[in-house]
Amino acid sequence: MEIKVVKRVLDANDTMAEKNREGFKRAGVFVLNVMSSPGSGKTTLLQKTLSRVMPDIRCAVIVGDICTTHDADRLAESGAPVVQINTEQFGGDCHLAAHVVWKAAENFDLKDLDLLVVENVGNLVCPAEFDIGENARVVALSVTEGEDKPVKYPLMFRQCHAALLSKTDLLPHIEYDRAAAIGYIHQVHPGMPVFEVSARTGEGMDAWIAWLTERIQAARSA
């Protein structure tokens, strides 16, 4: 005998993500989910982003890693409150799930924040599948990775609202076809904004900061 079920496996996460979204909206905080593979320069990019937007925009950060507090320590130097999630205690998870993000967010007074950055676990696969109730998702791709990563991990690049092509200061020293990389991003996600940035030199950061602040303001007045 066949018994019909028809239930989304990630239903529990989706329901929690929807609750997060309502909670974040009530507090008036914009949530940015930052994803990438390990070593793409997410933390440095975020350090520079925070130093550019603070204190006008009141920020806090949630950092996900399987273990260590290295990234949290680096981000705390910005002066923004930081909470580290070590997924080790959740079975070494390869992504941040909605309930884990909410538990971490409870450490902040959300009403006093404009921007909550979630630095997800370095991984181009799983975080794409887990809604955390964010307002925007961005993916960082460094020029030391293969140009074709977007087509190898299409779900991640389709799910994001913008891509950051990072470490562009290295371009003169390596063989990298940036046009091909951007082409692959647009093959998977036509029209997605791509910001070519170097956190080290600051090149390209203006356009990225402008995009982000515009979104924060738009969400506030919505």
Binding site: K4, V5, K7, R8
Partner: peptide
């Protein structure tokens, strides 16, 4: 992994299927 229209080249598309992860029955 090409997500633009093969007929008109338009990038404004809607995915109809492929994201499923559902328990349908036992």
């Amino acid at each position: 992994p090409v997500f633009s229209c093969p007929a008109c080249g338009c990038g404004d598309i809607r995915l109809l299927s492929g994201r499923e992860l559902d328990v349908t029955s036992i």
